[in-house]
C-alpha cells in the first residue's frame, strides 16, 4: 500500500489538488506535459482573472511555489503518464519524460485527472481570417498583450477601433456545439482592460448572447455603464483584410441590418475545447470520453467521479468552466483521494 496520489496535469485544478493533498499529509506525484507549471493561465500569460481583475500571479503564484518547493510534491515536468495498472489503493503507473525518453514506474493509491483544455484554433473556421490576416487575434493572445501593457497592431500602433467576436468555435455545429461558458466574461474583462490601457479606443462586442453567469454579470453592467463599451447582437460572416484595416461583415440583428465596418483589430473569443492531453490521459487510464471529447464522469452532476474507482476528475477536462470552479474541483478531487488514503493507509 502506498500513500502517494498521482495528479495528472499541473494547471489550476491539478495544483490545487496537489497542494490540498500535501497539506493533508499525502505525497503527491505531479505529472505535467509541458515544461512549466500553471496550466493555461501561465502558458498564455493571462493578465488577470475574471470577474475581479485579480492578477494571475496572485492566484497561481502560491500554488506553483508550493508545489515546486514542497518535499511532499514530486513534480515531473515535460512528462506524460504512459501506463496504469492495478486498482483503487494500488495503481502502478509509468511516467515517461518526453525530453530524455526515460520511463519511471510509481505506485500510487489513486489518480486525479486534471488535464485541462485548449483554446479553439480559430484558423479552423475560415470566416474570421485568423492566421491569414494581421491583427486578428484570439482572447488568449490578447491576454499576453494586456499583461505587457502594450496593445498594438502589427504595425506597432495602438488600435482605435476593436471588435470582439463572441462564440468563435462555440455553439456551432460545424466546429464545437457547446458553450465555453467563460469567454463572454473573459472578453468583457479584456475589453475593460483595453479601455483602461488605451483610453480612447472604441470597443464593439459582437455577440449572440451574453452569458456572464452568476456574479460575473457585474462585468457586463460595468462595461456598458462605466466604460461605454458597445454591444452589437449579431454574427460575423466574414473578416476581410483590406491591406490596411479589417473589414468586418456582419449583421446587427437588432435592426436587421447588414454592416460592413472597418476595424483596426479583431479579437476572437475562442472557446474551450478538450486538448490532446485529455484524450491521451483518458486512453491510458481507460476513461470514457463524451460525444464532445471531454472526459465523461459516471454521472453528469458529479464531476469528480470518473466511473473508475480510485480515479478522480477535476477541472476543464470534464467541461468548460471558470477558474474558480476549476480550483474548487481540484479541492473536491483531493478530498476523494484523501478518502481513499484513509481507507488504505494510515496517514
Amino acid at each position: 500500500m502506498t500513500g502517494t496520489v498521482l495528479v495528472v496535469g499541473g494547471g489550476p485544478a491539478g495544483l490545487r489538488a496537489a497542494v490540498d493533498l500535501a497539506d493533508f499529509g499525502a505525497r503527491v506525484l505531479l505529472v505535467e506535459k509541458r515544461d512549466q507549471l500553471g496550466g493555461a493561465p501561465v502558458r498564455w500569460k493571462y493578465r488577470s482573472l475574471a470577474p475581479d481583475f485579480t492578477p494571475t500571479e496572485e492566484v497561481m503564484g502560491p500554488l506553483i511555489g508550493f508545489c515546486e518547493s514542497s518535499p511532499m510534491v514530486e513534480v515531473h515536468k515535460g512528462s506524460v503518464v504512459e501506463g496504469c495498472e492495478g486498482s483503487v489503493g494500488d495503481f502502478t503507473v509509468k511516467v515517461r519524460n518526453e525530453a530524455d525518453g526515460t520511463t519511471t514506474e510509481h505506485r500510487v493509491s489513486s489518480v486525479i485527472v486534471a488535464t485541462g483544455f485548449e483554446h479553439f484554433d480559430a484558423s479552423v473556421d475560415p470566416r474570421y481570417a485568423y492566421g491569414r490576416a494581421p491583427n486578428v487575434i484570439g482572447i488568449n493572445e490578447l491576454e499576453a498583450m494586456l499583461k505587457e501593457g502594450r496593445v498594438v497592431g502589427h504595425d506597432g500602433r495602438p488600435p482605435k477601433r476593436v471588435a470582439f467576436i463572441f462564440c468563435v468555435g462555440s455553439r456551432d455545429r460545424s466546429t464545437n456545439p457547446w458553450c465555453c461558458t467563460v469567454c463572454c466574461g473573459v472578453s468583457i474583462k479584456q475589453a475593460i482592460e483595453m479601455k483602461q490601457t488605451l483610453g480612447d479606443v472604441q470597443v464593439y462586442m459582437i455577440y449572440m448572447d451574453i452569458r456572464t453567469v452568476g456574479l460575473w454579470e457585474k462585468l457586463y453592467w460595468d462595461s456598458m455603464e462605466k466604460y461605454g463599451i458597445n454591444y452589437i447582437r449579431g454574427r460575423v460572416g466574414e473578416v476581410y483584410y483590406t491591406g490596411e484595416k479589417l473589414l468586418v461583415k456582419g449583421e446587427d440583428t437588432l435592426v436587421r441590418g447588414p454592416f460592413e465596418v472597418l476595424f483596426d483589430m479583431v479579437v476572437l473569443a475562442v472557446g474551450i475545447e478538450p486538448g490532446p492531453g485529455t484524450k491521451q490521459a483518458a486512453g491510458v487510464l481507460g476513461l470514457k470520453l463524451n460525444e464532445y471529447g471531454f472526459i465523461a464522469p459516471r454521472q453528469p452532476n458529479v464531476h469528480v467521479d470518473s466511473g473508475r474507482d480510485g480515479i478522480f476528475l477535476a477541472g476543464t477536462c470534464i467541461a468548460p468552466m471558470s477558474i474558480e470552479e476549476t480550483l474548487s474541483e481540484g479541492s473536491a478531487a483531493a478530498m476523494q483521494a484523501a478518502k481513499v488514503l484513509k481507507k488504505t493507509v494510515a496517514v
Binding site: 464593439y204 458597445n230 446587427d252 435592426v255 447588414p258 454592416f259 460592413e260 465596418v261
Partner: peptide, 9 residues
C-alpha cells in the same frame, strides 16, 4: 444600399 458602413456615436 442598406449596409451600415459606420458606427457614429
Amino acid at each position: 444600399p442598406r449596409t451600415i458602413e459606420e458606427f457614429d456615436h
